[in-house]
Design a protein around this nucleic acid. Structure first.
Lengths: 225, 225
DNA sequence: TGATTTTTGCCAAATATGTGACATAGTAGA
DNA sequence: TCTACTATGTCACATATTTGGCAAAAATCA
């Protein structure tokens, strides 16, 4: 890592901020604090931290609301948010994750745990790229050149076949329902029979081999890796 | 949010209803009140609220019973239920959770807290999307990949089996009545024999192992964690 | 114990998908 | 223009898998 990661702590208890700050600075992070949601929001946009540690229960704007505003604004796409919560607040956990938070850390906070969680979260930030060339299993898909290699053997795919493969590997492992496939490849208006997808899948399988595309009956298809 | 969320308050103290109503209406919610469980049930089905605030201690039908009846009927799948409880009633917390409640709000009620909890709960309703990946015991359920892992052993489930498991773990520990399961998985119209669920449960148990799904005779099934 | 409910093994019906043969349309090259 | 070729889509039928159901056995409750 080339620069000191920046962390913003938002909590209405000054003591907590101080303790966290002390521990994190010891690990060479750059730390700032804010004592309520409004101040936190402002500082988030000015300071552009890599990570925000956010207490849920706060006056004025609560942590969840603040998180939502940050995530919705889209202005800090690379900032991770972790909630600080009291134990036994299972419900808030769920809401917190739904608001777009990336993790939560239970109070009372144990410094060791805190540090390792923080580091783990920052590692996640580091890699976030989408590429024109995807390698998966022994396949290489080049979205720009419109070509697919198995090992270094080129496989020529027809357009629909390529689109289909491309869709499936856009989220390897994810199951795509037939409906989703129709909508994404044929568009919502085109009307084709329901055997059509099977046929294309079959042709793909003929060219690629049997061990890439898996059928889940009644559910859809997925690329297996 | 496009429409005014509807809230039903059920409490045997008129004062409480009035105070809550006043505060919630100020926030632009549509509020109704009922003074006992029976009336509450009736109004719940007629009014179809987004959220029910439910006192636990009530004459005739208590709050927990009322909650159970609503959740078991499966007819108001999108209605959240929050209990109003006096502090230090931990034991009721557990029962209340198992009855399917979604949150608790402690009395005495502080309007600020009330409002923010209510908003949080409604946010949950709106964004129906739950986490794609759930970990529980040694199981990992990935809703996107439509797959289940026990440790790192993949277990392949058929659609209905997956749906069933998914329902059960959506509230671990909660007892799902057969009726609720029917309504949620088959929908209110489909007609299948009442041994059908058992059969699917069996197949799930065959695949997962015996220690996950517990039968409560005459009541229903639950996922034990 | 008897009554009720659930589990289980076995099987049948319903459904979804795979496959081969074929129709159509578009395209490139002669 | 014609021909040969390919991509796409369709159909009918074969197959595989899932789902639902019954009845006997087992478990549980009262």
């Amino acid at each position: 890592m080339n620069k000191r990661p920046k962390i913003l702590i938002v909590d209405d208890e000054e003591d907590i901020i101080e303790i966290l700050k002390y521990n994190l600075e010891k690990e060479n992070f750059e730390v700032r604090g804010a004592m309520d949601g409004a101040a936190g929001l402002e500082m988030a946009h000015a300071f552009k931290p890599d990570l925000i540690l956010l207490d849920i229960m706060m006056p004025k704007i609560d942590g969840i609301e603040m998180c939502k505003q940050i995530k919705d604004s889209g202005k800090l796409p690379d900032t991770m948010i972790a909630f600080l919560t009291a134990r036994n607040e299972d419900f808030t956990h769920i809401t917190a994750l739904e608001s777009g938070g990336d993790d939560f850390i239970n109070k009372p906070i144990r410094p060791r745990v805190l540090i390792s969680r923080v580091k783990a979260l920052l590692r996640r930030t580091a890699k976030k790229e989408v590429d024109a060339i995807v390698n998966i299993k022994d396949l290489t898909i080049d979205r720009e050149k419109f070509s697919v290699y198995k090992g270094n053997q080129e496989i020529v795919l027809a357009k629909k076949q390529f689109e289909l493969l491309n869709l499936l590997i856009s989220k390897p492992g994810k199951v795509f329902s037939r409906e989703e496939i129709f909508n994404k490849i044929w568009g919502p208006d085109v009307l084709v029979g329901d055997r059509t997808i099977d046929v294309h899948i079959r042709k793909l399988r003929e060219k690629l081999g049997e061990n890439y595309i898996k059928t889940l009956k009644g559910i859809g298809y997925k690329f297996e890796f």
